[in-house]
Design a protein around this nucleic acid. Structure first.
Lengths: 132, 132
DNA sequence: AATAAATACGACATATTTAATCGTATTTAA
DNA sequence: TTAAATACGATTAAATATGTCGTATTTATT
C-alpha cells in the first residue's frame, strides 16, 4: 500500500534530469532510458502523457525530444499524481457511490478523514519543491 | 497508487464495530463478516494478525471472539499500517539498499521528502482519532 | 466424554493491477 | 529519401492483492 508507481517514478527522474539542463535544451527518451536503466518504451509513454498534460513540450523528428513546459512551482504534487494516475484517494468509495455495501459500511467517515489529510498534504507540496 | 488494502479496510471496520460495544464484550468473526458482507476467512486472518500484534485480545472456544486490547489513542496510524502491511514508504529504496541503479538514481532525495511528509502525517494521526 | 462453535494458520487458487513489450504510424532534420 | 525521433493502441508478462480450502486447536455446553 502507498507505493509510488513506476510511471510516477520515471516521470520524476525525467523531470529532475531535465532540470539540470538549460531550459531550452531538449532531452530524448533514449538518453534518459540509457542513463538510468529504464525501459525506453515505457518511459516514452510516460513522457508522452506528460506532454499531453502540458507539463512537457515535445519536439518531433530527429534531434527532437522533450523540455519542461510548465511552471513546476505552480503544480501541486496532488495534481501531478492525478494527471498521471487518476483520482488520488485511499478508497474508491471516496469517488464512487455504487459500493454494494455502502449502507452497512461503518468506515466512510474514518476513510474520509485519512483521505482529506493525505490530499491536503499533497496539495501543499509543489513539484518544484520535490524535484529541485 | 495510495490505495488502502482490504486488510486495512476490514481491520478498521472491525475496530469501529467493537468500539460501539462495551469494552469487555466479545465479537465473533462471523458477526462482523455477516453484518458487513465481508469474506469470513479473510476477515479471520486479519483479526488473528491484530491479535498477534496485541491490538485485539482473542478468546477461543464457543462463545469466544475478540475484544479491543490496546489503547487506540497510543497507536499511530503509521504503526497500525505497518503492523498490518509492513514498512510504510512510497518506494522500497527507502528501506532497502540493494537497488541496482542506486548509483544512477537522481530521485532519492525527492522520494525521501515525500516519504518523510507521508510518514509524519501518519505518525501524528492516532487510531483512536480515526475510528472514533 | 462427546459435541459444537469458535479461533489459528499454512497452502493454494483466483482476480486485479502494474509493468513491459510489440507493432505500426507520424514527424522532420539531414 | 533516409534515419532518428515522438505517438499510441494492443497485447503479454509479472507482481500483488484477494479469496478459498483444509485441518488443527481450544473450550463452553451437554
Amino acid at each position: 500500500m502507498l507505493k509510488i508507481t513506476r510511471k510516477v517514478e520515471y516521470a520524476l527522474i525525467a523531470l529532475r534530469h531535465m532540470q539540470s539542463k538549460n531550459v531550452d535544451e531538449l532531452t530524448s527518451t533514449k538518453e534518459i532510458a540509457n542513463q538510468y536503466g529504464i525501459p525506453q518504451q515505457l518511459l516514452a509513454k510516460t513522457l508522452q502523457q506528460m506532454a499531453r498534460d502540458r507539463i512537457l513540450e515535445a519536439v518531433q523528428g530527429p534531434a527532437g525530444g522533450y523540455r519542461i513546459l510548465a511552471k513546476l512551482d505552480r503544480i501541486s504534487l496532488k495534481d501531478f499524481f492525478e494527471k498521471l494516475e487518476g483520482p488520488l484517494g485511499m478508497m474508491d468509495c471516496y469517488f464512487e457511490s455504487d459500493c454494494i455495501q455502502i449502507s452497512a459500511c461503518n468506515i466512510r467517515v474514518p476513510i474520509q478523514r485519512i483521505n482529506d489529510n493525505l490530499r491536503n498534504m499533497f496539495t501543499q507540496m509543489t513539484l518544484q519543491e520535490v524535484t529541485q
